[in-house]
Design a protein around this nucleic acid. Structure first.
Lengths: 147, 147
DNA sequence: TCGTTCGTGTCAGTTGTCTGACATGGCCGA
DNA sequence: TCGGCCATGTCAGACAACTGACACGAACGA
């Protein structure tokens, strides 16, 4: 019987999806005026913190396929936000770098995204945040364990 | 400067997205053999627990637009998983119902999804789960507050 | 040394979801 | 009563992301 299915009212999986959806919607709302999508922003933020990342590494960091990241990266390159060498120095890896324009664009976006995160965390104590951090990391670890 | 941007290593927002991504990947992995996507499953599960939901209500419950849910619902109807009246009894709302085939299909999927959720929650105490529940609900509430 | 395995970049085609727009039918408040 | 407002279902087009496939170079073990 499906009467005893996953109870959507109490399921942590459903709630996790709901929270993620709410976060995505909120981020899209503040990023849209800047002409940016969430993946777009994620890519720039990753590059700022880890310059020289390859397209595949960026893809893993932004939770999309390397094919998707590749087309995004070509767009960002065409529009002058990032640069990549024309040829690989080693293997086939093309390390990407932020341009000055990319950095400026990222700074605006970071401020907007930070405001969303601050709002999301509003009222939570440091202990509660630490607890949430451990909980989420535990979930991630167990979900990926037996693949 | 972007040096002090959102720290991806400690950001709860990033971790939330990561956890959601891991959950989605794990669910896709167990649902794929059944020929089902996550949205597909979500739709059936919602209908099982709340028979008579409209397409728009299902869309909100599955966190997609009503346009997306509409095309999915037409497919499910064509394949005999759900039924909808040809005409609206009141307004334009077309309440959907699971067919017997839909119920059977859902039962398989529910077992698979439950195994994922059990794995994700493995080792967490009831207190920890309750804490995670409150934390996520707080985040959702605050994120949606000022829209 | 050589062969296997892995990661990367890329091309092509498909699918899913989204935005924008429209008409329609309830639901109030003036 | 009626006008505005809202939610619904639907159509069309655009776009983002996916799957599948291929070639190439590096890394590792036999």
């Amino acid at each position: 019987m499906s009467q005893d299915g996953i109870d959507l009212e109490t399921s942590l999986g459903y709630l996790l999806k709901e929270a993620s959806s709410a976060l995505r919607v909120a981020m899209e709302a503040v990023l849209r005026p800047l002409g940016m999508t969430v993946t777009h922003y994620s890519c720039l933020e990753l590059l700022a913190q880890r310059p020289g990342l390859s397209s595949s590494e960026l893809a893993r960091g932004a939770f999309v396929t390397r094919q998707s990241m590749n087309v995004l990266l070509h767009t960002l390159e065409r529009d002058g936000y990032v640069t990549r060498p024309a040829e690989a120095r080693v293997g086939k890896v093309l390390p990407a770098q932020l341009t000055e324009r990319g950095r400026q664009s990222l700074d605006e976006a970071t401020a907007a995204v930070r405001s969303v995160e601050v709002r999301m965390l509003g009222g939570m104590t440091a202990d509660e945040q630490a607890g949430a951090y451990r909980t989420l990391q535990g979930m991630i670890h167990r979900l990926r364990d037996d693949l």
